[in-house]
């Protein structure tokens, strides 16, 4: 069977399967197990209401448990074993990682990414949101800045190869340098250390639209009166922006910042496509992929390091969610 038919078949089976499960299980509960009539109507209804949520939740819980909760444990256990997976070596993989120079470079780069990308994307997004607000063609501008969001990291990397390439006729940067009289084209992707920032900018380019859209909505949500009051008080546009508007959307800024932070910790595609991790550009996700299929023990150890990096924000997130529910 060709894959495309297999795909259609899967949709059919998956959708009817899901619908049938939900419908039949509810029917079974209402008609057979706890019918809401007869001598025990009241008790049966109460009982059905205890069971029903779990019918609704069951498939999702299975999927979540198997595909997200189990791997956290599974990865940790695997990371305590050697390459073949048979011999328990304790924290050996982690010790090897710490001793290796490549890992240290990846950690350093990752910290740079975590510092630079969310900050830059949020700042650009805030700037774009503020500038396009109330502009007659603001929506068109926003749409274009938002567009990279739809482009894959691989596609985006290719797009930026056209900017970074080391010839005067392909790379925009070199073309501009040439126009100012540079003699030799340079390969910005190979400049030690600074090449990281060129690669990071691709991520900034993708994420700015996301930040802009959300911050723009937050800016619109600011009560107009507070701005008008500030105008009456004689504040300049800059003062209004930094002292009236930004403090009021601080909560949203934090949300945007953390969301991009999480994304940065997942994305290996850009580094993989731009340099494959050469020239000192590895970050942890790409470093992990360099071990994938070769040394699962080492790969899971790197993955677990990423998990540890995420952990504090994850706990903060959960706390925040629980507070909101009260």
């Amino acid at each position: 069977m060709p894959p495309i038919l297999q795909g259609l078949f899967t949709i059919l089976v998956g959708v009817t399967g899901c619908v049938a499960y939900f419908w039949l299980s509810n029917l079974l509960l209402d008609r057979v197990i706890c019918p809401p009539h007869g001598p025990h109507a009241g008790r049966n209804i109460t009982r059905a209401n205890l069971i029903r949520p779990w019918l609704f939740l069951f498939p999702a819980l299975v999927v979540l448990g198997l595909y997200l909760a189990y791997p956290v444990v599974g990865s940790f256990v695997r990371s305590l074993h050697d390459r073949s997976g048979t011999e328990f070596i304790g924290l050996g993989n982690y010790a090897d990682l710490i001793a290796s120079g490549g890992f240290r470079v990846a950690v350093r780069n990752n910290i740079l990414w975590l510092l630079v990308v969310p900050a830059a994307a949020t700042a650009f997004g805030l700037l774009a949101a503020q500038l396009t607000d109330r502009l007659s063609w603001g929506n068109v501008a926003k749409s274009l800045i938002f567009m990279p969001m739809a482009i894959s990291f691989v596609g985006a990397s290719l797009i930026w190869r056209f900017v970074y390439d080391n010839s005067f006729d392909i790379g925009l940067i070199n073309a501009v340098r040439g126009a100012f009289g540079a003699e030799r084209a340079i390969d910005v992707i190979q400049i030690p250390f600074w090449n990281n920032f060129f690669i990071m900018f691709i991520m900034v380019w993708i994420q700015t639209g996301f930040a802009m859209v959300i911050l723009s909505a937050a800016l619109r949500g600011i009560p107009e009166e507070t701005v008008e009051a500030a105008i009456m008080d004689g504040a300049s546009p800059t003062q209004i922006f930094f002292r009236i508007k930004v403090p009021q959307i601080m909560g949203t800024i934090v949300v945007v910042w953390t969301t991009i932070t999480f994304l940065v910790l997942k994305v290996f595609d850009i580094v993989y496509t731009m340099t494959g991790g050469n020239f000192g550009t590895h970050i942890l996700p790409s470093y992990m992929m360099s071990f994938m299929f070769r040394d699962d023990g080492r790969a899971t150890a790197v993955a677990f390091v990423i998990m540890i990096l995420v952990l504090p924000v994850m706990i903060w997130n959960i706390r925040q969610a629980r507070r909101e529910m009260r």
Binding site: L68, A69, P71, K266, F268, A303, A321
Partner: peptide, 29 residues
Amino acid sequence: WMDFRGRGVLIAAVVGLLVVPLQLALVPL
């Protein structure tokens, strides 16, 4: 919209799983 014991814990769990790095899932799965 349903009221049952453990709902709060489940919601918190979903929020937590939201940020589990994909990398962690690759090898075990």
